[in-house]
Every structure is written in C-alpha cells, then in structure tokens.
Nucleic acid binder design. Sequence first.
DNA 1: CAAAACACTGGCCTATCGGACAATAGTTTC
DNA 2: GAAACTATTGTCCGATAGGCCAGTGTTTTG
Lengths: 216, 216
Amino acid sequence: MKSAPNLPAAHPPQRLLLVDDHAVMRAGLANMLNSRPEFVVVAQADNSDLALEHYKAHSPDIALLDVMMPGISGIECLRRIRDHDPAAKILMLSSTEMIAEIDEAIHAGASGFVSKTALPAELIAAIKTVLNGEQALDEDLKRRLEVESRQAHLTPRELEVLHLLRHGMSNPAIGNELRITARTAKAHVAAIMEKLEAQDRAEAVAKGFERGLLRP
Amino acid sequence: MKSAPNLPAAHPPQRLLLVDDHAVMRAGLANMLNSRPEFVVVAQADNSDLALEHYKAHSPDIALLDVMMPGISGIECLRRIRDHDPAAKILMLSSTEMIAEIDEAIHAGASGFVSKTALPAELIAAIKTVLNGEQALDEDLKRRLEVESRQAHLTPRELEVLHLLRHGMSNPAIGNELRITARTAKAHVAAIMEKLEAQDRAEAVAKGFERGLLRP
DNA sequence: CAAAACACTGGCCTATCGGACAATAGTTTC
DNA sequence: GAAACTATTGTCCGATAGGCCAGTGTTTTG
C-alpha cells in the first residue's frame, strides 16, 4: 500500500467492501463512510458472487456483509471469502436479530456482528474494533448468545429432519427420504420437539422459523 | 448548508417524514433525500408511536414507512396515520417482498410500495409519483399481486386458527379455545391446508411463514 | 332474489402421531 | 479409557389427524 504523497495523513484510509442487496442501504452506508477521512469504500456488491469477485480484486481491509441476501446467503459468502483469505476481516450486518444467524456467522468466522438498528457511531466503532483485530460483538448480543448456547441445539441430522417436516413429510416419508426406518425418523422428530419445546411438528416448524433455523 | 437562501425557489421543497427502525438506513435515506433541493426530511422516527407523533406535529407532504418494525408494525402505523389524516400520502418501504404484506398494506391504504433493493432513482420516482396523487406500484409487483389475489386467501377465522396451529394446538384444543366443536376446528384446519396446498398442519404453518401470514 | 362465501356441525374410517418403556453401535470429548 | 453425544432400531398403545360422505343457518354480494 502506498501512503498519501502530500496529505499529512498519519494513516492512509482503511479500504472497505460493502455487500448488501438493498441499494438504498448501500448508498447510505457508502455516503456515511466516505464522508470520513479514515475510510474509503473501494467496492460494492449486491450479491455474494460479485462480493467474492470484488474481494479478490481489491483485497479490502474489511468487508461489511449483510446476512440476509437472496440466493447465496451472506453467511455462505462469508465462508467463501474466509476460504479465499483466512485472515479476512469481516463484519456482518443484520436487519433481524435472530440468534441462530449470529451464532452461525460467528462460527463461520465472522469478525463481528452489528444490527442495522445500531446508530452510525456504533457501526463506526465496530468497524474500528474489527480493523484492530478484535471481535466486535454487542454486550447484549453476547449475553443472548450465551443464553442461546445453553439452549439445546439441534444436531445436523435433526436439522435435516426439521427441513423435511417443513415440507409436510410424515415419519415414513422422512424415513424413505433419508433411507432410515420410520421409527428412526420418529425419534429425530421427538428429539426436535423436545429441544424446541414444541407440542407437535407444527409448533416445531414454527419454532424453527422463530429461531432462524428455517427461513421463509 | 445546502439550501441557498437567495435561490429562486420555484417550488418549496416537499416535506418528508422517515420511519424505519434501522438508524443506518434512515441516515442514508435522509442524506440522499436532503441532498436534493426538491425534498427536505422534516422528521425521523424509529418506531410507530413516535412516527404518529411526528406526523401530527409536522403534517409532512409524504411519509416513508418501513413495513417491518419491532412492536407495532409499519402497517398498523399506516392505519393510524390514515385514521388521523385520510388524505395522507404514505409510501411503504420493505426489505422482504412478501406479497401478503404488500397486499395488506395496499388494502390498509398505502399510496405505494417500494422494495429496499430498488435503486435510489426508483425510490425518488416513486416518491414523486405518490406526491402527484398517483399510486406507486412496481409493474412486477402488480402482476404478482394479481397472481396472489387469484390464490385462495384465508378467511379471518382460518387465519385465527392458523395462529393456534402455530402454537401446537390440537383440534380439540382449538375448539376449546374458540368455543366451537373439535369437528369445526378440523374443518377450518382442512380449509387452511387446502388453500395453502399443505399436506399437514406442519407444512401449513411453514407456508404461513412463507406467505407472511405468520411472523417470526 | 339468487348465488356465493362463511361459520358451523355430524359420523366413519384408516393412517399417522407421540409417549412410554426400551437397546446397540460409532464418534467425539475429556 | 470413561463419558457424552449421535444415529440408529424395536414394540405397544391410545389419541389425533386427515379424508370421506354429509347438512344448516347467516351474511355478503352481484
């Protein structure tokens, strides 16, 4: 990186990549960040594919990723970027505050998490924290993450079954789909219902949506 | 700092109210709109209660409402504003594009609907359309609304039952709750499943979330 | 005024569900 | 190497679900 030739800038601006499918949000973010001397938005993307391309092309100091995007989700995008550059600094932005998503993002290697309801100043602070090599996580979110982690979490298999429940499949149908007996499918369903504190599969599906395990 | 006092302002700027729980989005919108001489943001709110207060206090020419807000939804806010001022011009903004929401908003008296994925220019155009007294609805959305309206829609009673299904209630339990026989509850559930093309109540609940009839 | 939609109710039948008891084997973790 | 977690399968039973055949009364709508 080259230093600014004439400016008395002790530090060159930090280079950012913005990824969000909402054009207005992107424009607003870019505007806000570019108005500060310590930042410069070098690229923007409205989808995950473009995001990865831009990341490779610009190697930004930090990437701001929206979690919710049509097609390839922000979290999958996060994984790909991290795959390309294990040292990537990635701050996730979210409109919802579903713990399951945050948890997934953190485990996938996100450097931090900021709600879109956060004030601009909070966002700026989070960006600086991540650039500093630390993890940017709201105290409130941290607490909720701990609470959630104490809650029973579904095993991969159970998650798989939950997705089939969502599509109205019976135990025999699930067994057929997963090549296990209906009895085993039943056991998974029972485990799901107990963990999600649901009285039947319908409520289990609802809880799945509430916890962000299932998406509309 | 941008409106020069000595300019020959042929038209006074149109006064806007912004309502969105996402501070960053609000800031971005305000920034973008204020940078144009024809608009001025006179107030902002991050919740529905404050929105109504501000509407009463400022009587803006147009209000931009986010549909998704914690607590009182944007649509309920829309109803209250319209209740206060039947001639109010209200443009709804949405991050999701769930037809059920749009449909509900239009029926509740929204003057238009714009997705947050829309380009700034499209948003500006929509605002001007609404200010012109016309309805701002994307052609694509219009088509999808028609398709959706052809789809069977749930009756109020069925919607009520769907909410009980979500909480894992059995037919007898539903009957008890609604003071009808289990047989009638069953009939409602059957109607729901047929209309939503679901094989069982679990899938009906899932479809409910997909269509925006149920919220996380 | 007729037609359609809505809310409600009945019986009968079979498949499925969910709970109550289980057990076995592989993997990961400590 | 023990302990915990995961995935798997078994049987029995009563309750529930969902499909099928109905019908009645009210309200809305054309």
